[in-house]
Simulated assay, not measured.
Amino acid sequence: MKTLAARMAACALFATLFATAAAPAAAHERTLFITSATEHADDTATFPLYRGRHGNTDVWYIVLDSSDGKDAERRGVNHSQKLANVRGTQAAQKVSVDANGVVQFPATVDFSFQRRVIPGPAGFPPSLADPGAVGEIGYSPLIQLPNGVILNAPHIANFTGQAAKVRGMDLGTYTVRMELTRGFQGGRGVLYLSTDASDPAVAALENVTFAPQLKFAPRAGGDGTDSARASLAAFVNGQTGAANPQRQGLNSALLDGLSPLNVLFWNPKQGRYSPLWDVYPAQWSANAVATGRNLRQTDFGQVENLAQDGRITGPDGARFAAADFVVNCPIVSRD
């Protein structure tokens, strides 16, 4: 069993609770991976909106990734071949499609819960973290179509309410504007959309849907093409200060009110990309902190090198390793 500190360290890294530090680059300077999206200067993006059905009620969802390359190209979404590894598992809900092309979902999300996050004595870890949106039994943002294709199709609204990241829905144009989060990948800045998490505390801190079925996505610590997950590093004790160019981490997110600037391993143009991020909490050693070597990191491979050198560990000096939390965060664009 992981300690509460280790568990909450993994949880708190998903800080879409916090405002971002800097304005994004101009649209023409960025690589837009989800080409069906339109980015805006306030770290939001507009996505196509789809209507599905759950029993006798409408549900509204977006599509962000597909396991099939041709399908992804047609939809203007990310291709993630690794999502095929959830086919037939509890991580995906099987759906049907009616004669009009409307997806019929066995389960949806209850958006009516009250989200509560109470900081602990030192801010982190929080003493209470309850999510504001909870998936019904069997709900997953990953859906398996009758032809076997896996889509990342999170629900963002239904009769119970709407997701907290929604900034506006237009049912006339079938579009929705969503809040994005900043991070790093391969030494460059990225914007990603966080929608679901497999742990309730993580979901509360990230302000997304608690979707426990995601925990069945294979497999913790598995970053290869035989896994459905990809690796993400989140620092628990980086430098702080809103104006500090080296700031990064959960402590900065809590003290400075800014993004923790998590470090993602792959981007959607790489075969090992997946929107299902396997979280590696990263703690700088006491020596690294004392000597000022706890500098901002932007590349997961370099984080691994620092862990091998002993400058980075897991929380409380544990081995740098996956904490077995899954967060659904597709990368939308990169600097």
Rank of each mutant, 00 (worst) to 15 (best):
H155V: 15
S259V: 02
K215R: 13
T175M: 02
R219F: 12
D309R: 14
F105Q: 02
A99K: 12
A204H: 05
P146K: 07
V77N: 00
S285M: 09
P260M: 09
K82S: 03
V176L: 03
A217I: 07
K70D: 15
F210K: 02
P330L: 06
T35G: 00
P154Y: 08
W277I: 13
D98Q: 06
G187R: 07
G317C: 10
V303K: 07
G168Q: 08
D278S: 14
S112D: 12
R293N: 15
N294I: 07
R182Q: 14
A211E: 06
A91S: 11
V289Q: 15
A129H: 03
N287F: 06
M8I: 05
Q162M: 13
A133F: 02
F184R: 04
V134E: 08
S36G: 02
A228R: 03
N237P: 09
C329Q: 14
D223N: 10
S274Q: 08
T46G: 03
H155L: 14
W277S: 07
P24T: 11
R167M: 14
A243R: 11
M178G: 03
Q162N: 11
A217N: 06
F320C: 07
V134L: 07
T89H: 04
V176T: 15
H40W: 04
T160M: 09
N207D: 14
G257T: 03
V332K: 01
D199M: 06
K215D: 12
G101L: 10
R167Y: 01
D71S: 11
S36Q: 03
A5G: 02
A290H: 01
R182G: 10
A72T: 04
A282T: 10
A84T: 04
F235D: 07
A164D: 13
L232I: 12
C329L: 07
A26V: 04
A290W: 02
H54V: 07
N267Y: 04
F18Q: 15
V86H: 02
A45N: 05
A217P: 06
Q144H: 01
A163E: 13
A201L: 04
S112H: 08
E73W: 01
R182W: 01
G120W: 01
A286V: 09
A286E: 15
A153E: 14
T240C: 11
P126C: 04
G161Y: 08
G88L: 10
A122K: 07
L306N: 09
F33W: 11
A204I: 06
